Simulated assay, not measured.
Amino acid sequence: MSLDGKVAIVTGAAGGIGLAIARRYARDGARVVMTDLQAERGEQEALAIRTAGGWARFMACDTADEATVETLVETVETEVGPIDLAVCSAGISKGGQPFYDTTLEDFTKVLSVNLVGPFIVGKAVARRMIASGVKGAIIHISSVGAVLGVETSPAYCTSKGGLSMLTKVMALAMARHGVRVNAIGPGPTWSPMTEAALDQPAIDMMLSRTPLGRFAEADEVAGVAAFLASEDSSYITGQTLYADGGRLALNYVVSKPA
């Protein structure tokens, strides 16, 4: 799918799903501005994209800080061009405890990155799209955790549930301006965050609820992001597309082979 000439901002782009999306957009012809708090790695990954023939620039940014985001977006518009695409992929997880043992600090930290951040980025980008008449797309990275609760991930699941509704209300507000807003809800996906958090029993448990019997690769999620950024999805807005290996379709657990 061609994104020739499009200007894209991808948050959380120093690794995982965000990086895979940045690489895919660059390969499809977009000029990609990558943001993350991991500045050194982000610079290295942007250089790797350029070395491979794509257009990429890294700019460090805390997406939960409104002033920083406004500066980022203004710089992109001034130095790169009007923003056509924004992908909010920055996210964190602080699981491991039920809600009654979760500190307010941890709870609010996850919401600030996973929910407030997309609100701030979406708001900054949307206002400029309206002003410039760009009929672009905003894409959030949600999760099956938006609809499937996990006892020990109260903040993460709450943030993703809120993100699904934020996607809808943003889509309704931007429809009259020709801007589409959607989300992707990955199921189990290999990324630095999941690899650091999961041991083998946890992996086995998740696969018992995944009909395709494997974790997704980040590139597979990037393919969905490419679709939502392209004209092939021109009549889709306000939706969360679940790339979940069949997880949400399954009532019980995957049958074991005889």
Rank of each mutant, 00 (worst) to 15 (best):
E66Y: 15
I49W: 08
C61A: 11
E79S: 13
G245N: 05
V147G: 04
A171T: 07
F227H: 06
F215M: 02
A137Y: 07
A67Q: 12
N251R: 08
L3E: 00
L198Q: 09
G162Q: 01
T51W: 11
F107I: 07
M206P: 13
L72I: 12
S255K: 06
G178D: 06
M193C: 08
A22V: 09
S142L: 00
R180F: 02
G213S: 06
A131L: 08
Q200H: 06
L172M: 15
V32D: 02
K256L: 14
H140Q: 15
G81V: 10
F215T: 00
L47R: 11
M165Q: 06
D65A: 04
A249L: 06
V121P: 02
V7E: 00
P188M: 07
G246H: 11
C157P: 01
D106R: 04
A243I: 06
T51I: 13
Q200K: 13
G161P: 00
A258W: 11
L241H: 14
I130K: 12
G213P: 10
K94L: 10
K6F: 08
L212P: 14
A225N: 08
I236G: 03
E220P: 09
K123Q: 05
K94G: 00
H177Y: 14
L172Y: 09
V147T: 14
A202E: 11
I17D: 00
D84E: 10
M193V: 07
K256I: 09
L228I: 03
V125C: 14
A218D: 03
A183F: 01
G245W: 09
V134G: 01
K94M: 10
M174E: 02
A13K: 09
E74Q: 05
E231Q: 13
L228P: 15
T35M: 04
G95C: 12
G95R: 05
A175L: 04
S2V: 09
A52Y: 08
G178C: 10
D28T: 11
Q239A: 10
D244P: 06
C157A: 05
M206C: 10
P211M: 11
E79Y: 15
A22S: 11
G162I: 13
G16A: 01
T63P: 01
G161E: 11
D232I: 02
R41L: 11
Q200L: 07
V80E: 00
Q200D: 10
F58T: 01
V179F: 13
E45V: 09
V181M: 11
A225E: 00
F227M: 03
R214V: 06
L104S: 05
S142R: 01
A146Q: 06
G238M: 05
I139S: 00
V253M: 07
L111E: 03
V69I: 15
V87A: 02
D219S: 09
C88I: 12
G117M: 01
G246Q: 12
Y242C: 08
T35L: 05
S208E: 14
V32F: 08
Q200T: 06
I21C: 09
G136M: 14
T167D: 00
W190H: 02
L72H: 01
G238F: 04
M129H: 07
S93C: 13
E40F: 01
L104P: 15
A243N: 07
Q200W: 14
G18V: 15
A216W: 01
E79G: 07
M205Y: 06
V33G: 04
P118A: 08
V110S: 00
I141L: 05
I92C: 07
R247P: 01
